[in-house]
């Protein structure tokens, strides 16, 4: 791995900490699916993507489209840490008049490339962005992140067929395979079968990795970039609530309105991360 792993680990911990803090400040929210995408966000924004926080609309940038829009809090934490907007803004998450709505809005938040939240739609927009760059012979990469539950939506599979047909090799689709959706386990609601086989059948260059491993995610991206005739699918084997053992164990962890026990555990996780990062406990 030609990258600075210790720095990325710190960035990952900071994203996780800020995600927990903004959701804790709000008092409820999509903890599970925000925490499970922290590692991929750390690799993308910490190492891989060309972005410019001083000029979020920079034409040469790589695009990131969070198709599973309910993961917004983790994206906001990442963008804030990158300098797209000040930390204080994070604590306005979902409050009246905020620029950080529960689902991302490209017209409200610097660094958000597409408005998402109606599941299945962001991925089509990502495909359109990748198509546009290909038509114009530009080198920008488009990274998009879909949820495993989101893949219930037929529109996702329309988008994958289209991407494959047009050989959009600068398109990366990450699947947050955290095995749960709002009402329970994905296998109990609509069994996803084998994502790896499905993406391969749809013509994608497909790699499955441990979604908590920065190194594996980074190396998969490098491999995807090294081939030039297929869109890339990286299946992230993740855990809903990833990185916070108490939340990983909690059964219904898609959207949490913490009870007293949850509250204690979330505060403990925040303190633990702050200590690890050498931050003053407040």
């Amino acid at each position: 791995m030609n990258t600075n792993l210790p720095n990325l680990e710190t960035f990952r911990d900071e994203i996780r900490l800020m995600t927990l803090k903004e959701l804790h400040q709000l008092g409820f929210g999509h903890y599970g699916g925000s925490l499970s995408i922290v590692e991929v966000l750390a690799v993308l924004y910490g190492e891989v993507m060309k972005v410019n926080p001083r000029n979020p609309k920079w034409e040469e940038r790589d695009y990131f489209i969070l198709s599973k829009g309910h993961g917004g809090p983790a994206l906001y934490a990442t963008l804030s840490l990158k300098g797209f907007f000040p930390e204080e803004i994070l604590y306005t998450l979902n409050q009246n008049g905020t620029t950080l709505p529960s689902h991302p809005d490209r017209n409200l938040t610097p660094g958000v490339d597409m408005t998402t939240g109606s599941l299945g739609q962001g991925i089509s927009a990502a495909v359109g962005v990748a198509l546009s760059h290909k038509l114009s012979d530009k080198g920008n990469y488009t990274f998009s992140l879909v949820g495993d539950g989101e893949l219930n939506e037929g529109q996702c599979w329309e988008a994958f067929q289209f991407a494959s047909h047009h050989k959009l090799n600068q398109l990366f689709v990450f699947v947050d395979d955290n095995k749960k959706q709002l009402d329970g386990l994905t296998k109990d609601i609509i069994d996803p079968l084998d994502f790896e086989e499905k993406f391969k059948a749809f013509g994608f260059y497909t790699i499955k990795v441990d979604g908590s491993s920065l190194k594996q995610i980074y190396e998969a991206i490098e491999k995807g970039k090294a081939q030039n005739d297929k869109p890339v699918a990286i299946i992230l084997d993740t855990v809903k609530g990833q990185g916070v053992p108490y939340l990983e164990e909690k059964e219904n962890n898609h959207h949490i309105r913490p009870n007293q026990e949850d509250e204690t555990a979330i505060l403990a996780a925040i303190t633990q991360l702050e200590n690890k990062l050498g931050k003053a406990v407040t």
């Binding site: 695009y63 490209r106 490339d113 597409m114 299945g120 739609q121 962001g122 991925i123 089509s124 927009a125 990502a126 495909v127 359109g128 962005v129 990748a130 198509l131 546009s132 760059h133 038509l135 114009s136 037929g154 529109q155 329309e158 988008a159 067929q161 289209f162 047909h165």
Partner: peptide, 26 residues
Amino acid sequence: PKQLINCGIMEANMVGVAAGLALTGK
């Protein structure tokens, strides 16, 4: 040829792809 794309029978995706094209100034 580069400015006329047949998206196939997938209208929802066609609108989304159009949105992505529009994001980049098309």
